[in-house]
Simulated assay, not measured.
Amino acid sequence: MSVYGLKQAPRAWYMALKQHLLDSGFTNSLADASLFIQGSGSNLTYVLVYVEDIIVTGSHSPTVDVVLTAFADRFSIKDLVDLHYFLGIEVSRSKRRMHLMQRKYINDLLLKTNMSDAKPVSTPLPTSPKLTLTSGALLDDPSKYRSVVGSLQYLSFTRPDISYVVSRLSQFMHRPTQDHWQAAKQVL
């Protein structure tokens, strides 16, 4: 479930929400400050907070319902809906599975970079030239490269097949060259 439209002042609201979750037995993830986890073993409940949007999910529906009811009792909730789209990730469900995809995110990225008409390639990493810190001429404006590689990092959540090349391209963020930009375009 997603909870939309919590309109309290952002910092005060987040601190109140965090305290509510901690008081309710959730622990704050050490890996991600926006993730809260409750339970143990096979009965786990997760709350993910992003600005004013919240995802509540878990392995036991009645427990998730209790968390949502506690939210409704404590906070002004505008809209409680099933999760379909969150932070560029599309969510679809079958009876036993949840499928995550970023089709819209990919299409938007291709439009933004004028790569919508690009032809598919067999591998996302070119075999030549070998990418090094000094290969190719420096880009006049590295901001587009950095933006695209940052977008590709986010895309690798649902596309692990590009994780290696995106990691490799990330190594050149401080000094990208034309060769690095061509490799980024190949991923696109």
Rank of each mutant, 00 (worst) to 15 (best):
N107V: 12
T127H: 13
K112C: 07
P120F: 03
Q102A: 04
A137Y: 09
S116P: 03
L138C: 05
S135H: 09
S94A: 07
V121W: 10
H99C: 13
P126F: 06
V121Y: 10
T113V: 01
S116E: 06
R96C: 13
P126W: 07
K119I: 03
S94V: 05
P120D: 04
A118V: 05
T132I: 08
A137G: 11
L133M: 12
L125Q: 15
S94W: 07
L111M: 11
H99A: 11
K112G: 05
Y105G: 02
M115D: 01
K112N: 06
R103K: 12
L133A: 14
L111E: 06
K95G: 12
T127G: 13
D108W: 07
A137W: 09
K130R: 14
R103L: 10
P120Q: 04
A118N: 06
P129L: 04
H99D: 11
P120T: 03
S128E: 08
M101R: 15
P124Q: 07
S116F: 02
N107T: 12
K119N: 11
T132C: 10
K104P: 06
V121M: 10
T127Y: 13
M115L: 09
Y105Q: 00
K130V: 15
G136Q: 02
L138D: 04
S128R: 10
S116A: 07
L131P: 05
G136N: 04
M98N: 10
A137N: 13
S128A: 09
K104Q: 09
P124A: 00
R96F: 14
A118G: 09
N114H: 02
A118W: 00
L109Y: 00
K112H: 11
P129H: 05
I106K: 04
N114T: 00
A118I: 01
